[in-house]
């Protein structure tokens, strides 16, 4: 199943750094997110879109993960050549991640 079935997401930008939240709809699904949505999975899924480091912060109380991607916005919104210079659509890319369906 897609991550979209379990979680919602919003992307923010500060300078050349993007942050992507992954938030469980239901708090009881948080453990699945924590296990499935790892730094390696995010890096693998976004592929060439990731240009720097990926750091994950866990917020179990909110049922959320926060991914911080450095040097990934083409210099940031003020100078990027990208159509989506803020990288705002990255949240939708994350939600397309394939998650293992429980047996």
């Amino acid at each position: 199943m897609k991550l979209r079935e379990l979680a919602h997401s919003r992307t923010g930008d500060k300078g050349n750094t993007s942050n992507i939240s992954v938030i469980a709809y239901r708090l009881e699904d948080y453990a699945r997110l924590e296990a499935a949505v790892t730094v390696e999975r995010v890096r693998g899924h976004l592929g060439a879109l990731v240009r720097g480091e990926v750091v994950r912060y866990a917020l179990p109380g909110l049922g959320a993960l926060n991914f911080v991607l450095t040097r990934t916005l083409g210099g940031g919104v003020t100078r990027s050549l990208a159509l989506d210079a803020h990288g705002k659509c990255l949240s939708s890319a994350i939600l397309d991640l394939e998650i293992e369906t429980p047996a």
Partner: peptide
């Protein structure tokens, strides 16, 4: 859900959200 999305919007380390006034900690919200 709307509050959780906005809470993490443009946040890096939720335990250290730096402003000129304070190093705010959102990690236990």
């Amino acid at each position: 859900a709307t509050c959780r999305e906005q809470l993490l919007y443009e946040v890096h380390d939720p335990a250290r959200y730096l402003t000129p006034d304070v190093a705010a900690d959102f990690s236990g919200v």
